[in-house]
């Protein structure tokens, strides 16, 4: 007996991965350049925003989240929100001591 769930798979073409790789390398070099020229307080924000964009590409394409059951992306969002909440609360505590 064949189970349909196990058969349903999305095949991502090779070139999609190569495009994503090009974007990721470009973003890495942008991040390196941006942080070498001093932007003051904005440097940290810029580096982290770029890291966030890179992670989104890795999660969505490399880790197939864009094509998987929506349950996975929702769970990932949940974990990221949890981490963000813990980081925010900890920093609020330290910044206001």
């Amino acid at each position: 007996m064949k189970t349909d769930e196990n058969e349903k798979h999305h095949i991502i073409p090779y070139r999609t991965f190569l495009y994503v790789l090009a974007i990721l390398i470009l973003l890495t070099l942008t991040s390196v350049t941006l942080t070498q020229i001093s932007l003051g307080a904005f440097t940290v924000a810029a580096a982290l925003i770029i890291a966030g964009i890179k992670s989104t590409f890795v999660l969505a394409i490399f880790m197939h989240l864009k094509f998987e059951n929506k349950m996975f992306s929702r769970a990932v969002c949940g974990v990221i929100l949890l981490l963000a909440a813990v980081i925010t609360i900890t920093l609020l505590d330290y910044l206001n001591r």
């Binding site: 890495t28 991040s31 390196v32 942080t35 440097t43 940290v44 580096a47 982290l48 770029i50 890291a51 890179k54 992670s55 890795v58 999660l59 490399f62 880790m63 197939h64």
Partner: peptide, 26 residues
């Protein structure tokens, strides 16, 4: 194979944050 790929991407994902935090933000 997909699961081993997922693990490898996670390692990559963590490095994406380690790299700016230790090497770039000075």
């Amino acid at each position: 194979l997909e699961n081993s790929g997922l693990y490898w991407h996670l390692v990559d994902l963590i490095w994406i944050f380690l790299f700016p935090l230790f090497y770039l933000i000075t």
